[in-house]
Write a protein that binds this DNA or RNA. Structure first.
Lengths: 209, 209
DNA sequence: TGTACATCAGTGAACGCGCGTTCACTGATGTAC
DNA sequence: TGTACATCAGTGAACGCGCGTTCACTGATGTAC
């Protein structure tokens, strides 16, 4: 004869039934935002569906308004989140937030893995087209992160390389954005790869000239 | 006493009241498509509102289905139209459809007038972001016109210039698309101008190297 | 060339679906005593 | 530490608006004779 004692962890129990501790709310809030930030990079600023988003976060749609005043509010927050999440990733690797070198930055940016995972990639490329039609708040966020990207390029230069003029760094960023955008917009995989490679060469030669 | 004879021109009469001659239908069809092609370049592939579109064409929404089987059908046709309309414009001037030179092409593409009038500009830049999330038909159209753009660059070279490798032409196209996209996505007008100028320099120096 | 009729482009009311938002309710959390 | 109560995160039905689509109708076009 044996006695089996079943201990149900509070956290597990709460997660499976109806939990609403403060900690869990924060966790849910963060999860919703993160998923929204991913979703808009994959499908655009208009692509957020409240019910679908909540479902993907493991919740029901009604609770959405305990977290955000409106869908519009969420999109604005998710936009900012997409840029910060994407910046970390674009800098090369999920861990560090400084690129090892300008060359690494360019190669990582125009890589197939970045092309094939816009949801976790740089928001500048993922959303530049949409933001061209959006309000000035959205434009301001992009602007900030575009400048940060250009700065990252400059900082990634070796000591003995000549400093990168501001305009030139911006032009290289433009090439990266255009190359990645087109690589995603083209049907033929070979042409897509060629776009990545060719733009990479253009950017790298511009870096060292 | 005088007799006034009022002659109402059939064409005018028809246009002001309810006209439905074959010629007018074709005219209306073309007008609707052209406006839709403009609208999607301005506001994106999802931005077509049937009632609004018909109103802008001087018609009411009910008649839409005498012209297109569905909204989806219209968008597909308008997409193709946007590319052909935009190509003529991007080549420099509304009249000719061959650029005078590669330099003119680049300068026209990255001009303020092009930046400030996406509705009449190149559909590659206006819609590349959207098409990255669209179906393979849309991608195929972009692909065709992207190649045509790269070819136009090559043909615009002077006799004594070295021929442009395929990949390099594509990379320059990528830079143009990125530069114009960012110039439209940025709030600060000075930064926007700088993006145009810097990308222009990058593209021109890539052309002659 | 004129007359009768069929066609069909265009009109505007109405329908119905999708989706953002609201609301009454549940039950665990967390606080007051 | 235990008990009573207020709070509030989450649920799911219901609401209402926007918008694509349908439909009965109008009247000019265009064709048959």
């Amino acid at each position: 004869m044996s006695i089996i004692i079943l201990i149900v962890k509070p956290s597990l129990k709460a997660r499976s039934s109806m939990g609403h501790s403060r900690a869990e709310k924060a966790e849910h809030h963060d999860r919703i935002l993160g998923l929204a930030a991913q979703r808009i990079r994959e499908a655009g600023l208009d692509a957020i569906n409240v019910a679908e988003l909540m479902r993907s976060a493991g919740l029901t749609h009604g609770g959405f308004y305990r977290h955000f005043a409106s869908r519009e509010d969420l999109v604005a927050e998710a936009l900012a989140r997409a840029f910060t999440d994407g910046a970390a990733r674009a800098m090369g690797g999920q861990e560090r937030n400084e690129p090892r070198s300008a060359g690494h930055f360019v190669r990582g940016y125009l890589s197939k893995t970045h092309r094939d995972d816009p949801g976790h990639g740089c928001a500048i490329t993922a959303l530049a087209g949409d933001i061209g039609r959006a309000d000035s708040d959205a434009k301001a966020i992009l602007e900030t992160h575009l400048k940060a990207g250009a700065d990252a390029l400059s900082r990634g230069l070796a000591e003995d390389e000549p400093p990168l003029p501001h305009g030139k760094a911006l032009a290289i960023m433009a090439a990266l954005v255009g190359g990645l955008t087109l690589a995603r917009a083209v049907g033929d995989p070979h042409l897509s790869d060629l776009l990545l490679r060719s733009t990479r060469e253009l950017a790298l030669s511009a870096l060292s000239s």
